[in-house]
Amino acid sequence: MNNILTGAAMGAALTVTGVYEPSVILAQFNFSDFSMLQTFLTAAAGSTILVTLSQTLHLTSLAPRPPASLGLLSRFDGNMLGGALLGAGMAISGACPGTVLAQLGAGVRSGRWAFAGAVLAGAAWSVFGAGACRRVPKKDAEEKGPEAADKKKATTVYEMLGISRGAAVVGFEAAVAVVLVLAAKYATAMTAARGISPLVGGLAIAAAQLVSIVLRRSLLGASTSFEELGGGIWRLLKGQGVAAYGNILFSAGVVAGAWLLSTTVPSLAPVSEVIISPIRSVLGGFMIVLGSRMAGGCTSGHGISGLSLMSMSSFLTVMSVFSVGGLTSLLMG
Rank of each mutant, 00 (worst) to 15 (best):
N3S: 06
L5T: 06
G11T: 09
A13P: 01
A13N: 00
A13M: 03
L14R: 09
V16P: 10
S23D: 15
I25N: 05
L26F: 00
L26T: 11
Q28H: 15
F31D: 12
F31N: 12
S32V: 11
F34R: 08
F34T: 03
S35T: 13
L37R: 01
Q38R: 15
T39S: 13
F40I: 01
A43S: 14
A43R: 10
I49Q: 07
V51H: 06
L53V: 14
Q55H: 01
Q55E: 13
L59H: 14
T60H: 03
S61P: 00
L62V: 09
R65L: 15
P66N: 05
P67R: 12
P67D: 08
L70C: 09
G71I: 11
L72A: 14
L73P: 06
L73W: 13
L73M: 11
R75S: 12
F76P: 06
G78V: 08
M90R: 08
M90I: 02
S93C: 10
S93D: 02
G94C: 08
G94P: 13
A95Y: 09
G98Q: 02
T99K: 12
T99Y: 04
T99W: 07
L101K: 09
G105I: 03
V108H: 04
V108D: 05
V108L: 11
R112L: 15
A114S: 14
L120Y: 02
L120D: 01
L120W: 03
A123Y: 11
W125P: 03
V127P: 00
A132P: 00
A132H: 06
R134Y: 10
P137T: 10
E147C: 00
A149F: 02
K151T: 10
K152D: 10
T155V: 15
T155Q: 12
E159W: 11
L161F: 14
S164K: 11
G171S: 09
A174M: 14
A175P: 05
A175C: 11
A175Y: 07
V176M: 08
A177P: 09
A184N: 11
A187S: 15
T191Y: 12
A193P: 02
I196E: 07
G201I: 00
A204K: 04
A204Y: 03
V211G: 05
L215Y: 08
L219M: 15
L220A: 03
G221T: 05
A222L: 01
E228C: 03
E228Q: 13
L229V: 12
L229H: 07
R235V: 03
R235I: 06
R235W: 04
L236N: 03
K238G: 15
G239S: 06
V242P: 07
A244K: 15
G246R: 13
L249F: 13
F250P: 04
V254R: 01
A256N: 05
A256K: 04
A256P: 04
S262Q: 02
T263H: 13
P266Y: 09
A269M: 09
A269V: 06
I279C: 00
I279N: 03
R280A: 15
V282H: 01
L283N: 01
I288Y: 04
I288S: 04
G297Y: 04
G297F: 03
T299H: 02
G301N: 09
G301Q: 10
H302L: 00
G303P: 06
I304W: 09
S305T: 10
L307K: 07
S308P: 07
L309W: 05
M310C: 11
M310W: 00
S313F: 02
F315A: 12
L316C: 07
S320V: 05
S323C: 12
L327G: 05
L330G: 06
L331W: 11
G333S: 12
